[in-house]
Design a protein around this nucleic acid. Structure first.
Lengths: 232, 232
DNA sequence: GATGTACGTTGTACTTGGTACAACACCTTT
DNA sequence: AAAGGTGTTGTACCAAGTACAACGTACATC
């Protein structure tokens, strides 16, 4: 299969080094890194030094390691490849203000969705996630909406295309409800989905009805800004 | 020298592949990638496949390549290692509203500074830059302030420590003026600098005086939120 | 239709890079 | 003093990584 066949083992080892870091463990000793990637310490050290040379890792003064600034730069380039206009951030902020829930934009990457832009609700109880996180497409309203509007077959997707939105409660995470609509670009091409997320208790039929209008207005605005049809 | 000695050449080749992409060239054909990194096409293909396996690159349907979503996730983890509180984004937005200029937070990485958070001015003529960009520490007010408050020797740095801020016009870029103050965390430890940037014509003595007050208030707020001393 | 060019991909031979092991110096704990 | 763990370096070995050549496909030109 193109794009995922014979590669370079050393490069894959380096990639697994980068994956060892999380938002809970953003600093790791050499020994701990070696344990996590199951490589010899000397191997890890040499790979880490090469990554550091390019700003992908940083060696702290105490010889521990952390992710490097170049990742942020490259991640930012990745995000900007979606030609998101300047209005996404203020639009998401506005959505949060008007609905009280967290708001995010997702795009499809293969069989997953990526959280591209995000603003969290200001309420004490809120759904919080990280820009860059990936989730399955067939779990949660944002993914289902994407599948529906790229033509996936199935009654559930027929219904979503007809309704123009989808809502789920606890499908991916028992504690999270979501409401999502599609975003288009360049005419009828799907860009991704715009979603509100929060605790299920705040997603009553009445709340959904009210927030759906606001969400659809925001999605139309975004689609139009990206040269897309306003949508259903 | 630790952290930058013998490494792994294949890993460095992979890193140079990632660096080939820019915000102007976010999609590259295999041949163009090979030309830019001066490697054989077959070598580039194999390295690219390994990077794609980990989400660091993506192969498009037409066999061209682009940066992958994992970079955004890792970049976001990198950004969050600075334990920036939730108030940075709204604080920068507020700074832009109140001063009319672009506002950003910089931190030190080695002998460079990294733009960690940023909000651009809404004016038609504005200084615009990218989160993740790096600049020399000894060019521009944000870097000078960082050097001053990590104890760099020199009359210019003595003056900055005394004044508590620094302003430059055209030092790094002839068309950019900047005004910067320090941000602290965990007591007296320097976190980085908070800066306003824009065209020199909008940085008169009078404008600087007015904006400095706003900037210093914002910096105090940020420092306190991160457990730092309010500063001078 | 024939020809030429460029693309992405695969097979393969050869060289040396990449790996793990062992040893070391240093630091901390008992 | 001894033990244990850290990060780092030297080194031997072998298989990985590389570039070259060839291939199939697509497109443009005549």
């Amino acid at each position: 299969m193109p794009g995922n066949s014979a590669g370079v083992a050393a490069v894959e080892r380096a990639a697994s080094l980068l994956e060892a870091f999380t938002d809970r463990d953003f600093t790791l000793s050499l020994g701990e890194l070696a344990r996590r990637v199951e490589l010899d310490k000397s191997t890890v050290l040499r790979i880490a030094r090469s990554l550091a040379k390019f700003g992908l890792l940083v060696r702290n003064d105490d010889a521990s390691w952390r992710l490097g600034p170049k990742l942020m730069k490259l991640g930012n380039i990745y995000q900007s490849t979606f030609r998101a206009s300047d209005i996404i951030e203020p639009l998401l902020a506005d959505l949060v203000e008007k609905t009280g829930e967290s708001a995010a934009v997702y795009v499809r990457e293969g069989d997953e969705r990526v959280c591209l832009f995000r603003h969290d609700s200001h309420q004490a109880i809120r759904h919080s996630a990280r820009v860059g996180s990936t989730y399955p497409l067939d779990r949660g309203a944002p993914g289902r909406v994407i599948l529906a509007f790229v033509g996936r077959a199935g009654a559930i997707y027929d219904d979503i295309r007809k309704a123009g939105f989808f809502t789920t409660s606890g499908e991916r995470d028992p504690q999270v409800a979501s409401l999502a609509v599609p975003i288009f670009r360049d005419g009828a091409a799907l860009f991704g989905s715009l979603a509100l997320t929060g605790p299920p208790a705040r997603f009553s039929d009445e709340a959904i009805k009210k927030n759906l209008e606001i969400l659809q207005m925001a999605a139309r605005k975004l689609s139009v800004a990206m040269g897309g049809d306003p949508g259903p």
